[in-house]
Write a protein that binds this DNA or RNA. Structure first.
Lengths: 344, 344
DNA sequence: CTGTTAGCGCATTCAA
DNA sequence: TTGAATGCGCTAACAG
């Protein structure tokens, strides 16, 4: 930033003390060991020179960068700002800077992001990426001494703490709601296979349907977790069942963006939600209640997910290590305008 | 991250060369000066040891952190993810890491964020914060050799490049649209005073109204740039004009979140948009077209703002310095469902 | 309570 | 083409 900023030696010279004394005077931890008079003189000199401690040099010496890598799959997905905000609200007061890394493009970008963060010697990692197949890589990271927390995702057997919403309970609540309304043909429009959220929600869907033989699970479609993906697979679903008789009357989508796309698909075809099709989303992303119609969806406490994941990581970094564990937050079905009894 | 990672000396030992040779072999710039055989041996040793270069140590030596501070007022405002995404798409390929800092709480947090970023020795700054009164502080930063770009904001006299949308043109387009529809009583629900976007848009509003004496500008309300703020000041506006006769029939809001709040205010009172009140937002934030009704708003090319600001900063960092300059992007009025001719 | 000494890991200048 | 020496700015032993 400024090439010409004063160093600790400059301050020492002005204050007439040794650099180590300056270091002590400027560090709250060690400050107590100095005479108040010296402390005062040093701080005055520092202010006079506009001294800004060099965190890079300190990091090299202490082997702590006081930074944390936060890896997310897509910053344009509105569920992440609340999560990031929650993370930041814990990290910042604890003295850590979050290095938020959006990996947009998938696995390659993920590897690159990890490499970049390791070069920067982040003290820990908060991973919100959802690829299920990196369970093995987690163990490798763990063996290398990496501190990490996984958020908004599950994992087969994770050596790191897990923080996520109760996907199973959420899916059950959604399906119970639809069944109570009288729906007997329900589809699940889920996200890409291999994502932990996809698999977890789909497993819950399958389990529920086994327990409710009176309800026909007509189909399960798969697409990207975006509005475009949701629109495409709702199109496909509508195309597949030409006779309205056999068509599902309700769907649960993999997330709210997909639900949004499904709404668009209906609109384009002149169909109406909830009259022609009930839709339940997942997450309760910001503004889901402003859609037309307001989206019935499973609310996940996103900000809280962020807060707790950061808290767990800071604990690890402080050596109050909580190793493998799972923190599951209850979710709430928000019943709004996109669900209603089936027509007829 | 991993406490026990190999150093350049470890690699040197395994490869049977000196550390400086390792440094050269691993740096594309200096690699040419080595024999291919040596380069190969070093790289092989590095791979074998799982060597990860230490960016902290390099930063101390080179006085470059290869990081850039990105300061934003509120990550929960949906206009920022696209901007951040645009920034990242330039910074990352150029080798820089974005340190995104959300200052939520205003001026104190802003100062703290700047201090933190300076300690980390970021190479440059992208500022999306909008306080108008820090024009002076910009000059101070500039004199200290700080490299920076201001995005999504104007400034009285900035020593740094400015990248923003054409607020004046956007406001004019919005008002022309409303006038064409037949509105003759229009209000501007703007954001907090002292924000550059507030002042710019308000000035354009005032100028337009001077040129259109046939249109009554009944009032100008001020509140925070949030949905809650928008709802409050729409409430106030409706309370103030009890007789529907004198009430404005259309409003332009400071941003889309305020427009959203205004919509809620109407809904709570049993009024309808656009029948009882036309609303024009500003920015075209993600999902503004999904509101009920879909929001007529001024589209600002948010992602592009991010891209260009990052490009300008990287130029500065490469010494291809473009100093003070202003990059104004054209905006587009997106006419959707929230505007219509006034009733009667 | 304060000074001395040492070295974190790397890039770079100067020799050879 | 490679090796040797130096120091970026800081904190942490260890003395005194």
């Amino acid at each position: 930033m400024s090439r010409l900023s004063a160093t600790i030696d400059d301050v020492a010279r002005v204050a007439g003390v040794h650099r180590s004394t300056v270091s002590r005077a400027l560090n709250p931890q060690t400050q107590v060991k100095l005479s108040p008079e010296t402390t005062r003189r040093v701080q005055q000199a520092a202010r006079k020179l506009g001294y800004v401690p060099n965190a890079v040099a300190r990091g090299l010496r202490t082997n702590e960068s006081m930074s944390v890598g936060v890896v997310i799959p897509d910053i344009l997905n509105p569920i992440f700002p609340p999560i990031i905000s929650g993370i930041d609200s814990i990290l910042r007061p604890a003295g850590y800077t979050a290095l938020v890394t959006d990996i947009q493009g998938g696995q390659n970008a993920y590897e690159a992001a990890l490499a970049s963060l390791r070069q920067r010697r982040v003290d820990g990692l908060i991973l919100a990426t959802a690829h299920l197949d990196d369970g093995e890589s987690f163990h490798r990271l763990h063996e290398q001494g990496v501190r990490a927390v996984l958020v908004n995702r599950a994992a087969a057997s994770s050596p790191f703490p897990l923080v996520h919403g109760d996907d199973t309970g959420g899916m059950r609540a959604a399906l119970d709601h639809l069944a109570t309304l009288g729906h007997v043909r329900i589809a699940h429009l889920h996200g890409p296979e291999g994502l932990s959220t996809t698999e977890g929600r789909r497993a819950a869907f399958d389990e529920w349907s086994r327990q409710h033989p009176e309800v026909t699970v007509t189909a399960s479609y798969c697409g990207p977790l975006t509005a475009e993906g949701g629109q495409e697979i709702m199109d496909a679903l509508l195309d597949a069942s030409t006779e309205a008789q056999s068509r599902p009357t309700a769907v649960v989508t993999g997330n709210d963006l997909m639900a949004l796309g499904a709404l668009r698909s209906l609109r384009v075809r002149g169909l109406h939600c909830p009259e022609d099709m009930s839709i339940v989303g997942f997450n309760d992303m910001p503004f889901a209640d402003e859609f037309s119609p307001p989206l019935t969806t499973v609310r996940v406490p996103l900000r809280q997910l962020g807060v707790e994941s950061a808290r767990l990581l800071v604990q690890q970094l402080h050596g109050e290590g909580s190793g493998a564990m799972e923190l599951t937050f209850p979710v709430t079905l928000m019943v709004r305008g996109s669900t209603a009894p089936p027509r007829g």
